[in-house]
Amino acid sequence: MYTLNLDHADFLKHYWQKQPVVIKNAFPNFSDPITAEELAGLACEEEISSRIILTKGNNWEIIQGPIEDYTPFGENNWQLLVQAVNHWFPDSAPLVEAFRFIPDWRFDDLMVSFATPGGGVGPHIDNYDVFLLQGEGQRRWKVGPLGQYSPRGGDTHTALIDDFEPMIDVVLEPGDMLYIPPGFPHRGETIETALSYSIGFRAPSQQELMSSIADHLIDNNTGLKRFTSLSEPSTAGLLTQAQQSGMVNLLSELLSQPQHYQQVLGQLLSQNRFELDICEQEGPYSQDELLEAFEEGALLQRIGGLKVIRLEGDSVQRLFINGEIYPLEGLTDEMLDTLANQFSFDHQQALALCSNKTLTDYFLWLVNQGYAYLA
Rank of each mutant, 00 (worst) to 15 (best):
N5H: 09
Y15N: 14
Y15R: 08
Q17P: 04
Q19I: 07
P20Y: 07
I23T: 05
F27A: 10
F27T: 09
F27C: 09
E47Y: 11
W60F: 12
G74P: 07
Q79W: 12
L80T: 05
W88D: 01
S92H: 08
A93N: 11
A98M: 07
A98I: 07
F101P: 11
D104R: 09
L110Q: 10
F114C: 10
V121I: 15
G122D: 13
P123N: 10
D129L: 09
Q138G: 13
Q138H: 13
K142V: 15
V143R: 09
D163R: 06
I168H: 09
V171T: 11
L172K: 05
E173P: 09
P174E: 12
Y179N: 02
I180L: 14
I180P: 11
T190E: 07
E192F: 04
A194S: 13
L195R: 07
Y197E: 06
F201P: 01
A203K: 09
A203I: 05
P204D: 00
A214W: 09
N220C: 08
S234G: 14
A236N: 14
L254Y: 09
P258N: 01
Q259C: 09
G266F: 03
G266I: 00
F274T: 10
L276K: 00
I278N: 02
Q281P: 06
G283E: 13
P284F: 10
Q301F: 04
R302G: 09
G305I: 06
N322L: 08
I325P: 05
L328N: 02
E329M: 10
D333T: 15
E334N: 12
D337K: 14
A340G: 08
Q342N: 04
Q342Y: 11
F345Y: 01
H347Q: 04
L351M: 01
A352Q: 00
L353R: 01
T358D: 11
L359M: 02
T360W: 03
L364Y: 04
L374Q: 02
